[in-house]
Write a protein that binds this DNA or RNA. Structure first.
Length: 206
DNA sequence: TACATGATGCCCT
DNA sequence: GGGCATCATGTAG
């Protein structure tokens, strides 16, 4: 049976191993509701971060004030500031008490493209490179106006939330799995997932 | 209180 | 392909 549920993801979607969630999130929509309209992007690249045993994960050293969201219930936003410049968006996985998350690395712009480009300081022209809007964790956060103050701890599967994860029926076809980007610890593990061939995946094109 | 460090992106060659 | 801006966080002292 090929069910194609359309609508907000359920909390249970995130109540499992981050590797499965990272794979399953490919093709879903990340939506920001704003007074001026809806911003939306299709998830094309993710990374899984586990708990103890994954030295690259913020949760590896145990619970702190900063990473406490990772130890909370599934489906909530973990936003952190990195390199003095950028915000990164993650979603918590697994039941409360068990840490784990998925990092959103890149989106394919779907709706509100001009608005997102404006947030990125990009002018939309015929020759514009739209990949600069949301190809990369810092870029997509800026495009959607994601900040720690505004979005950390937010429930991403609540009808009342202005930041939501939605299934519109799209199914990712080919998925590639590679080591994660930009980390030094546990760098050998293949925990990065992306839609093969999608031009909005971060990094240089092949 | 100080300091090293990092799930990055931009700009310049 | 490489330098660098820039700062929250955690840990050491």
């Amino acid at each position: 049976m090929d069910r194609r549920p359309v609508g907000l993801l359920k909390p249970e979607f995130f109540d499992r191993d981050p590797r499965r969630v990272a794979r399953a999130l490919l093709g879903k929509l990340l939506i920001r509701k704003t007074p001026r309209g809806i911003l939306a992007g299709r998830v094309v690249e993710t990374e899984a971060y586990l708990g103890a045993g994954d030295a690259a994960a913020h949760a590896a050293a145990g619970k702190t004030a900063r990473n406490s969201v990772l130890f909370g219930p599934p489906g909530h936003a973990y936003v952190y500031f990195i390199y003095g410049n950028h915000f990164c968006l993650n979603v918590s996985c697994l039941p409360a008490g068990v840490p784990g998350c998925v990092l959103f690395r890149a989106l394919e712009p779907v709706a509100g493209i001009e608005e997102m480009a404006r947030a990125r300081g990009i002018e939309v022209r015929r020759d514009s490179d739209l990949r600069k809007i949301s190809s990369g964790p810092g870029r997509m956060s800026e495009a959607l106006g994601i900040t720690r103050e505004r979005d950390n701890r937010k429930n991403l599967v609540s009808a009342k939330s202005d930041l939501q994860l939605v299934d519109d029926g799209y199914r990712a076809r080919r998925v590639a799995v590679t080591p994660r980007i930009g980390i030094t610890k546990s760098a050998e593990q293949r925990l990065r997932y992306f839609i093969s061939g999608n031009p909005f995946v971060s990094g240089r094109r092949r």
